[in-house]
């Protein structure tokens, strides 16, 4: 599968995850969100950026409970809980946010 933005083609797998990590840019995230009828706010971007940094550092997308705890530690307790993250990403914070961040499906996410 693939989609196109400004004449450039982006390959994805059958679930819509970006095939090449290095293809990612903010337009890609925006396009994926639009297709899910999701408006990306500052709070969404904060999580997306967090995930990209995490991948850069450890080469994995964190499992949801790891993400929740790490967000709580770095962005504050009010954000480090599943209620907050599920409100932002109703399809599941790890799955949906990782997809917008251009990462593969989280390790430990079946």
């Amino acid at each position: 599968m693939a989609f196109e933005i400004n004449g450039k083609t982006y390959e994805t797998d059958e679930e819509g995850y970006l095939a090449n990590l290095s293809d990612w840019n903010t337009d890609v995230a925006g396009r994926m969100a639009t297709e899910d009828d999701c408006d990306l706010s500052e709070n969404h971007w904060e999580v997306i950026k967090f995930l990209r940094d995490y991948y850069e550092e450890y080469q994995i997308a964190p499992a949801v409970r790891v993400l929740t705890k790490a967000i709580g530690k770095r962005l504050g307790k009010d954000k480090g809980n599943s209620k907050y993250l599920y409100e932002l990403f109703p399809y599941g914070p790890a799955k949906q946010a990782c997809k917008y961040a251009g990462l593969p499906k989280p390790t430990g996410c079946v």
């Binding site: 995490y54 550092e57 450890y58 080469q59 994995i60 964190p62 499992a63 790891v66 705890k69 790490a70 430990g108």
Partner: peptide, 10 residues
């Protein structure tokens, strides 16, 4: 090798 750094988070 970088992934071992995430073990603590897990």
């Amino acid at each position: 090798a970088l992934t071992y750094g995430a073990l603590g988070d897990y």
